[in-house]
Amino acid sequence: MRLIFTSLVSHGHLYPLLPLAVAARDAGHDVLFATGEDMRPVVEKAGLAWESAGFGMREAFASFFGPDAPPRDPTAPPESFYPVIGQVFGNVLPRRFVADLTPLLERHRPDLVVYESGNAGGAIAARLAGIPAIGHGFGRVSPGEVMDIINGHIEDYANEIGVDGVKLTSFGDPVIDICPESVQSPDFLAETNRIPLRPVGWAEPGDLPAGVVGRDKSRPLIYLTLGTAFGDEGVLKRAIAGLARLEADVVVAAGPTVEPAQLGEVPANVRVEAWVPQTELLPHVDLVVHHGGSGTTLGAFGAALPQLVLPQGADQFTNAEAVVAAGVGGQLIGAEGTEDAIFEQSRKLLADDGVRAAARKLADEVAAMPSPAEVAARLPEFAG
Rank of each mutant, 00 (worst) to 15 (best):
H291C: 03
Y223N: 09
G90H: 01
A53Q: 15
V288I: 15
D249P: 06
P186I: 03
D156L: 13
P267D: 00
P277K: 00
L349P: 01
L48K: 01
V328W: 15
G28P: 02
Y82F: 14
Y223C: 06
P372Q: 05
A359G: 08
P74K: 00
V270H: 02
A320M: 10
V270W: 01
R219A: 15
G313W: 12
D353G: 14
G293Y: 02
R238T: 11
V266N: 00
G327R: 08
V84T: 10
G122D: 00
G295R: 02
R219N: 10
V309I: 03
V213Q: 12
D340T: 10
S294H: 01
F317Y: 11
F97H: 05
P209F: 14
G264R: 05
G214A: 12
S52H: 15
I178D: 00
S170L: 05
S218L: 01
V31W: 06
R215H: 11
N91A: 07
R40A: 10
V166W: 10
Q184R: 04
D164M: 07
G139T: 03
G12N: 08
Q307I: 05
V114N: 04
A357V: 11
L362F: 00
H11W: 08
I176R: 08
R360C: 14
S63Q: 13
E259V: 09
V289G: 09
M369F: 07
A99L: 01
G28N: 10
R347T: 02
G162T: 01
A23Y: 08
A23K: 01
S63Y: 13
A304S: 07
L298W: 04
V258Y: 08
C179W: 02
G118V: 07
L243Y: 09
G130H: 01
